[in-house]
């Protein structure tokens, strides 16, 4: 296996809510990210899936140090990200880029496309030279936009085109890791496919790694080498892509897969949908976070939180009954 690029260990982010009541001593705490660990190797794509509100975007912001983490460690390319001063961090940032979900909010409307794409380089102290401008044109061609569009403003582009501009900006400093925060969720399905393919081409060309955050398992499956499933601030299962789909070991993963629509009326299996709502991260359920919605919950699930356990080659799951689950699931159907 290739070298580990980023190693996230026991990452925690708690948001303390402000209350207007001065007599409340213990302010409510949202455990948005509650002990998350994973690694991404060089040239690998790790998918991070989960319902909205499960903390997956927060993880992305934390490893970019755009939000201060409450505790834990992030080691990126030999640097301890969380303890770096702002000057040191600035020099690491060229290797660590992000693509945002909303292509309308992520591009500065006052700048031309060229300025937007080159902004990461200018921010790193590069001067505006003819070579750099030529590089901008080259980047535009790489993401499938004509170079002559470089003097346009973002509002003159469609959503998919803007996302391509956002991608061009992210790859401009030749980063080692790109965090794709719901990078295609805001796009039409047909455009999604184009952008995903573009991202795969670019990865092959430039040899970078992706942390691909999304909620659509089908999309994440398409691009990822490994997938981590998050539920309420914790990773419940992490495995190689094909392994996860052929042998899901956590009831939440199974439920997510059952929710993928099947485009055939007869083949539509009995939907084993997740019941109920995502519990409030303000007061997560005791024991296993998933037990109120789990069809296989036992007493132990209500009292004891399961740890991520090794369930096979590169396959980890945090369920007390992970060993028995495949049989149970087939029995239920």
């Amino acid at each position: 296996m290739s070298k580990v690029l980023i190693n996230v260990a026991n990452l925690v982010k708690h948001f303390t809510l402000a209350t207007s009541n001065p007599f409340v001593r213990d302010k409510p705490v949202v455990r948005a990210v509650d002990g998350v660990s994973f690694t991404v190797s060089e040239g690998e794509t790790l998918g991070l899936v989960g319902e909205s509100g499960c903390g997956k975007s927060t993880v992305g912001r934390l490893i970019l140090n755009l939000l201060p983490a409450s505790s834990g460690a992030v080691e990126f390319d030999g640097h301890d990200i969380l303890s770096m001063d702002s000057a040191g961090m600035r020099s690491v940032r060229k290797d660590l880029q992000i693509i945002f979900q909303d292509p309308h909010a992520s591009l500065n409307p006052r700048m031309t496309v060229e300025e937007i794409i080159l902004e990461p380089l200018y921010a790193q102290g590069h001067k505006r030279t003819p070579e750099l401008r030529a590089y901008a044109a080259e980047l535009l061609e790489m993401v499938g936009l004509p170079a002559r569009f470089r003097n346009r403003h973002p509002h003159q582009f469609s959503g998919g085109q803007r996302q391509r501009i956002g991608i061009a900006r992210a790859i401009a400093p030749k980063p080692k890791l790109v965090v794709c925060d719901e990078a295609v969720s805001a796009l039409d399905v047909s455009v999604q496919a184009q952008v995903i393919n573009l991202m795969q081409d670019l990865k092959a060309k430039m040899g970078m790694s992706y942390l691909f955050i999304g909620h659509d398992l089908a999309v994440v499956r398409h691009i990822s080498d490994r997938i981590a499933v998050m539920y309420l601030g914790r990773i419940v299962e992490i495995a190689r892509c094909d392994d996860l789909f052929s042998r899901p070991l956590h009831p939440y993963t199974q439920a997510l897969m059952a929710a993928i629509p099947v485009a055939h009326p007869r083949l539509r299996h009995k939907r084993d949908r997740v019941r109920g709502e995502l519990p409030s991260p303000l007061s997560p359920p005791k024991g296993c976070h998933f037990h109120p919605r789990c069809p296989f919950a036992q007493d132990i699930c209500r009292s004891e939180a399961p740890q991520l356990r090794q369930m096979g080659d590169e396959h980890q799951a945090s369920c007390h009954f992970a060993e028995d689950l495949p049989e149970k699931a087939t029995a239920a159907q």
């Binding site: 940032r93 909010a105 591009l107 902004e119 790193q124």
Partner: peptide, 13 residues
Amino acid sequence: LDFVMAARASGAT
């Protein structure tokens, strides 16, 4: 807005 966060993520002062 996101583009401000994008600028910060790029290391802008």
